[in-house]
């Protein structure tokens, strides 16, 4: 039991339970499977990005450029499938190639020129986004193919509410879950994954131990790029429009969700479970406020308070831990 309270995740989980209880007493519609499936689907976009951000943070870096990568990915994909046709497979391939390529550029700059990751990725955010807007002229894309429209409605299984409304596990949500499982396996059970933790814990020691630092960084930023690409695709599926200016600007929101889940910006710590909880917390707060008929104006105030209290609390805990004592005779 004592061990349990050493983990940041426990506290986040408690907060989630308390929030859920409050929301449910005010509006019982919150605690329905239908609402949950719905919520999971609409937060897959942030959820997928958060997986990438978690891995970057564990490796001791930070990535700001992912919103631009996601935008570029979905835009290129939309333009190509409209112009040349294709299917879901080509769409995934396109966003993956774009995402990984842009992520690799980040990794190369970070590794070879030793530029702080935050600076590199702020710069590339502006570069990727600027070029996209200039080339696209900022035009929105609406005329997505039918198969693209239909794909978004696929459910792995379907249930029915008492009123006869259909709901179920969307393929989009399933994709998010699959990504979490894959990322978890990589982090937990592969040499590469342990290398990411090791590098985040101590870059020097990792280098001396013989880890391939360039390889690991390449993976971390390409994986972030891949996640961004897929998230871009998911966003396009969810809203069925591709708007170049709808994603950029949300980078700090995603990072906030990950940080709420306990990943440290100093690197080396953080878990996917924590990240899921962070995203969940953000999701039920947004959803809960709506269900409790609180004006959406209050959304940021609540999120801000939760962030400040959460980071303040864990900082306070860390400070208590540092206080040292020695054994004094006669005490």
């Amino acid at each position: 039991m004592k061990n349990l309270f050493k983990h940041h995740e426990t506290y986040v989980l408690l907060v989630i339970i308390v929030f859920s209880a409050i929301i449910t007493t005010i509006n019982p519609n919150f605690l329905t499977l239908e609402n949950f499936f719905d919520l999971a689907k609409s937060y897959s976009f942030i959820g997928i990005l958060a997986v990438g951000v978690t891995i970057v943070l564990i490796s001791g870096g930070i990535d700001i450029s992912f919103t631009a990568v996601a935008t570029v990915g979905e835009y290129v994909m939309a333009v190509m499938v409209i112009k040349y046709g294709g299917n879901m497979f080509t769409a995934v391939l396109l966003v993956a190639v774009v995402g990984i390529a842009l992520g690799m550029i980040n990794a190369v700059l970070i590794y070879f020129f030793n530029i702080p990751t935050i600076i590199t990725t702020i710069a590339t955010l502006n570069i990727y986004y600027g070029i996209l807007i200039v080339i696209s002229g900022g035009k929105w894309i609406y005329a997505l193919p039918d198969w693209f429209r239909n794909f978004a409605d696929i459910r792995l299984f379907t249930l029915r509410t008492a009123q006869g409304l259909e709901y179920g596990l969307s393929i989009i949500t399933a994709t998010w879950f699959a990504i979490i499982i894959i990322a978890w396996i990589i982090l937990r059970y592969t040499k590469l994954g342990r290398g990411i933790y090791a590098m985040g814990g101590s870059m020097n020691a990792a280098r001396r131990a013989g880890f391939n630092i360039f390889g690991i960084q390449m993976f971390v930023y390409s994986f972030m790029g891949l996640m961004a690409g897929i998230a871009g695709l998911v966003q396009a599926l969810l809203v069925q429009t591709v708007a170049p200016n709808s994603i950029v600007g949300k980078e700090l929101d995603v990072i906030a969700a990950v940080v709420l889940g306990g990943a440290s910006l100093a690197g080396g710590s953080g878990t996917l479970f924590g990240t899921i909880l962070g995203v969940t917390l953000i999701a039920i707060m947004g959803n809960g406020l709506t269900l409790m008929r609180v004006s959406s104006f209050w959304y940021d105030v609540f999120i801000g308070l939760v962030i400040i209290i959460s980071v303040g609390f864990s900082a306070y805990q860390r400070r208590e831990k540092v206080k040292r004592t020695i054994l004094v005779e006669g005490e």
Binding site: A256, F297, G304, I308, V311
Partner: peptide
């Protein structure tokens, strides 16, 4: 937050950023 509670500055100011932005939205509707 940064000096007394020793919260990392990026997190502390991310929090105040969100909070203050929220308050600004609330005051101006």
């Amino acid at each position: 937050l940064v000096a007394r509670l020793k919260v990392s500055p990026i997190l502390a100011t991310l929090g105040t950023m969100t909070l203050v932005n929220g308050l600004a939205i609330v005051t101006t509707r």
